[in-house]
């Protein structure tokens, strides 16, 4: 029997954490010990997750590739599948296919300062790279994280932001949109591009990973350029709708590029060669 590429692995739900009013993160492990033993992935890759009876959705694997006993993903409740995933509890079974796609070039980034810029629900696909870098702390220069959300209640992985800030040569900047702050808010108030500009980060030897809503990315790119980052040193992860994840179903392409196979990670230099189709 040739492998059925659409049949998922069964995964046990180990833990569910509610991150915000409509965002949860889930920790899962392979039911089959043999699959668990052979499985590996690279940070930046994604999976296709099943809620049986409802369908599949595509999410980044937001845990570090150094964590061997489980993987994690994070989602916002927005449709039928995520409504169903919202109901899952510890001990439940879901499906996982993957890992798919390319990954962050973490080896290429060695020796560089890292600037991570995330907006809202875009923190999970950055979180895996932050953990990976912190777990290989000697290999990277200064790490700066600028993470913005609409309100203080929309920031995900808040406890981990505190934990990251404890590491050496690491700066964590949190911001919320104007009006999204609470009286006791100690972070910045403003949009990610403005907060980044104000932070005046030393960027001579830096690479940046920017993930967020299109408007945030669009307004952040000029700031990074002004800071002196070359297009080949600015990366993002495209979040196109996918069904198969394996280059067949025909919907995730951006011009000649199948995001599920040749992406989702692209440098700005690569993006410049893609048609305006994302």
């Amino acid at each position: 029997m040739v492998m059925n590429i659409y049949k998922p692995d069964l995964m046990k739900v180990l833990q569910v954490r509610q991150q915000t009013g409509d965002v949860k993160s889930v920790r899962i492990a392979f039911e089959d010990p043999a699959r668990a033993a052979e499985f590996s992935f690279r940070v930046g890759q994604f999976g296709i997750f099943s809620a049986f009876g409802y369908g599949e959705s595509t999410f980044n694997i937001c845990s570090s590739s150094n964590w061997k006993d489980y993987i994690e993903f994070c989602f916002r409740k927005t449709g039928a599948v995520t409504e169903a995933l919202w109901q899952i509890e510890e001990g439940d079974t879901i499906g996982f296919r993957g890992p798919y796609g390319n990954s962050y070039p973490m080896e290429e980034w060695e020796g560089r300062d890292l600037i991570f810029l995330g907006g809202g629900i875009a923190m999970p696909p950055i979180r895996c790279a932050i953990w990976y870098a912190l777990e290989n702390r000697d290999k990277y220069g200064h790490i700066t994280v600028v993470y913005g959300a609409r309100t203080t209640r929309d920031l995900v992985f808040q406890d981990e932001l505190d934990e990251w800030a404890q590491h050496e040569r690491t700066t964590i900047i949190r911001c919320v949109d104007p009006g999204g702050e609470t009286p006791d808010w100690k972070g910045e108030i403003g949009f990610v591009p403005n907060v980044l500009k104000k932070a005046a980060i030393q960027a001579r030897n830096a690479v940046a990973l920017v993930i967020g809503p299109p408007i945030m990315i669009k307004n952040t790119l000029p700031v990074l350029s002004d800071m002196g980052l070359a297009e080949r040193d600015i990366y993002t992860s495209l979040e196109n709708r996918m069904k198969c994840g394996v280059g067949k179903c025909g919907r995730c392409n951006c011009g000649p590029v199948y995001v599920c196979k040749e992406g989702p990670v692209f440098s700005l230099e690569q993006m410049k060669h893609l048609p305006n189709d994302f």
């Binding site: 009876g53 069904k243 198969c244 179903c249 025909g250 919907r251």
Partner: peptide
């Protein structure tokens, strides 16, 4: 091009 859906 195809879609993948559930029927339960």
């Amino acid at each position: 091009c195809f879609d993948i859906t559930d029927e339960k």
